[in-house]
Design a binder for these strands. Sequence first.
DNA 1: GAGGTGACGACCC
DNA 2: TGGGTCGCCACCT
Length: 109
Amino acid sequence: MSNDFFELTYEVVRNIPFGRVTSYGAIARCIGAPKSARMVGWAMNKAPFQENQVPAHRVVNAKGLLTGKMHFHGKSMEELLLVEGIEIKDNQIQNFEQVFWNPMEELKL
DNA sequence: GAGGTGACGACCC
DNA sequence: TGGGTCGCCACCT
């Protein structure tokens, strides 16, 4: 199943707990494709098209920067993350390490 | 059918 | 320490 990559990506993102965020690279590495971080981003692009809702707003780059907020229509990632209690300043997550959620640690695949 | 792009990351200089 | 470049693979033109 070549689509396992996307499936796993969506599943991992879906498992992100409330008030936590993660990075594309972390997910990519968790599914066994550390060099395909970009694919994770592309998967996020396809996420809204999936029937299963994917909290893509909880996924940011390794720096905690909301690079993909422009792709969101309607409410901004900032707003969604702010509701979860995550502080955002200048499109960057404050206390990134604090709110960062490592799929490897929690999922332990 | 081929080339270029992209919600990134890591390596090199 | 910081900036620039390459890699990666699917989707779009």
